[in-house]
Design a protein around this nucleic acid. Structure first.
Lengths: 343, 343
DNA sequence: GTCGTCAGTGAGAGCGCTCCCACCCGAGGG
DNA sequence: CCCTCGGGTGGGAGCGCTCTCACTGACGAC
């Protein structure tokens, strides 16, 4: 029996296309790559021939000579638990994929949650196996992006890196403006003692959202009080603990801005446990607009980030760098307050 | 100044490794590929040399001759909105990535939400650009997996395909057992009129969870009543609507199994709106154990799937097929009831 | 006329790797 | 003693593509 033996039946090559179009391989290649100096006749013939026989260029052969892999890594540098509870990254991944695919490149999904894996990836990238990297969720002052850039692999980060290295390229949502907007919602409803539960201060996000809170208070002539600022860790339980501490230290708190929705949900729990009502006794504003935000009682007022756009913009920036352009090193995307009933 | 010009400074080739080890390219290649018929001396020398100069094999060159791309696609065949709200796929992606990476292959993340994109991917795969496909969230009787297999691209699905094509290879959680277990929880607490809100019946998941419900009732000698079975669509609002209908048609309902947590959350809303208490008047069990499940009031009793394992197992199956083995075509992973307070 | 010039083309040399084949031994059988 | 035999090795072809370079002929400038 003559089955379809994949190893035996080879896909058509450029040679075949060229022969069918009555031109040389070089010309066929030029057409397929979109080079300009080809006559219209030759162009048409090649396109037709390629279409007729269902030709797909062999990426491996192309890569071998161009030294381009035509692929880009979506590198997640995060321990799993923290990352994967949240649809956040998935939206970003989708945004990036759409943009990358539109340019005919491949998106490689890679996880490097340990230092060893990170090292291995560096080696891999150094071998020229990816043209660029979208680096997700960098922590502290990890030098990975610098290392990659040094190896000649353009890298784009999500989120402002802590080290204010101007050579680093990143896309972020406007966390400062978001923190301020959230705080302003609370000011506008007449709150007098506005507390905040911050994100981790070893991340740009955490710092920036707090900075927004401080700035908004200052703008209306109020000073931020130490005892109204509780450190959190972006988790529900962390939010509950922080809120309990705030309520104990400052029983007159009548509003709180939590730097993430999960912490806001935790805070709401603590507020209820203390016998206070939301928003009448204590108003709450979160950040992120995760899916749970609309399911809480009362539904959570929060700040929405354009997460898909974040991924898309990162990819776009990277593509421009791969094309040899020198696009802006930092892009900050606007956020938007989603008004619900908790404030 | 002599900068590091990436185009100019080429990574070391096998040639260099071979020279340094004092053997031929062929032998060096044998060692690096793990072939057996090489002397220990040669082996050591090559390994040492490769390590010394930080050699990474050029994938493109290798692919060109082996006609293997050493990459596998994680293909998401779903319209975005439905898919990306849920951490489900992210966990699966992570599981798959871990397994694939351990074999030294690449995981390509691809979205094909339209028929055109799906067609394009088929063409791409036909060109030999991926060795295999992990196909996520297939709907109805889409013939994509069959088409891929016919092209010689091994494909593994998540979830039982509707068409009972025995050649199709899939991994699924035990939705029948899960549906039954959920129903048994309700039976055990003495519920008399147990309703169910089903998933879409054009998907295996939807069918199977309903089948589990029916089976559990039958096993204790009860008949499933038409009027206690409400069709749902896996969304919160769908759950609310279905529950309202159930409560209207059968006011004596005292328990409901919703085939997804989101529908369960919707159902809880409807139950509350009708003035009934959970679980005293109506007990609720969901399915999936999404993050929100523990945040509802009362926390939702549900059925947890081993999602990460699902992805891992899919990848594992695919890898075995790529190795020329003939592993089982279907694998069903056990699920587990998570007891909380809604039932 | 003769000379560039220049758009359009094809021949041919690789890219770095794998794999086929020929070869070289030393051990064992006739 | 020759002759297999088989583990171990290297030479060399070639995977499908791109890219350099040399060439053509048409065309305007001198």
């Amino acid at each position: 029996m003559v089955g379809i033996d994949r190893a035996a039946v080879r896909p058509p090559t450029l040679e075949v296309v060229a022969a069918r179009a009555g031109v040389s391989r070089a010309t066929a290649s030029r057409v397929l790559r979109g080079a300009s100096n080809v006559s219209q006749e030759a162009r048409d013939a090649v396109v037709q021939a390629a279409h007729d026989i269902g030709y797909t260029p062999n990426r491996a052969a192309r890569s071998l000579v161009t030294r381009r892999s035509d692929s880009v890594a979506f590198l997640v540098a995060e321990s799993e638990d923290r990352l994967f509870g949240d649809p956040y990254f998935l939206s970003m991944l989708r945004g990036a994929q759409i943009e990358i695919a539109a340019s005919g490149l491949q998106l490689l999904f890679v996880i490097a949650s340990t230092a060893a894996e990170s090292e291995q990836f560096k080696h891999y990238a150094a071998g020229g196996h990816v043209d660029g990297v979208l680096l997700i969720s960098l922590h502290g002052d990890d030098q990975l992006p610098q290392a990659l850039e040094r190896l000649g692999v353009p890298t784009v980060l999500n989120g402002r890196p802590l080290s204010d290295d101007p050579s680093l390229c990143y896309v972020d949502s406007d966390n400062v403006a978001g923190g301020a907007a959230a705080t302003e919602v609370l000011i506008a409803r007449g709150a007098r003692h506005i507390a905040t539960i911050t994100g981790p201060q070893d991340m740009g996000v955490g710092q920036d959202r707090l900075a927004g809170y401080v700035a908004a208070l200052r703008r209306v002539g109020r000073a931020p009080f130490e005892r109204l600022i509780a450190p959190g860790d972006f988790t529900v339980d962390g939010g509950t603990r922080a809120m309990h501490r705030l309520l104990t230290a400052s029983p007159d708190v009548d509003a709180v801005f939590a730097a993430s929705d999960l912490m806001a949900i935790g805070a709401m729990r603590a507020i209820e446990e203390s016998g206070r009502r939301i928003p009448d006794d204590v108003a709450v504003v979160g950040f992120d607009d995760v899916r749970e935000a609309s399911l809480t009682a009362p539904p959570l007022t929060t700040v929405r980030q354009p997460i898909g756009d974040l991924g898309r913009t990162m990819a776009h920036l990277l593509l421009r760098r791969l094309d040899g352009e020198d696009p802006p090193r930092a892009m900050v995307l606007p956020v938007e307050v989603v008004h619900r009933e908790s404030a």
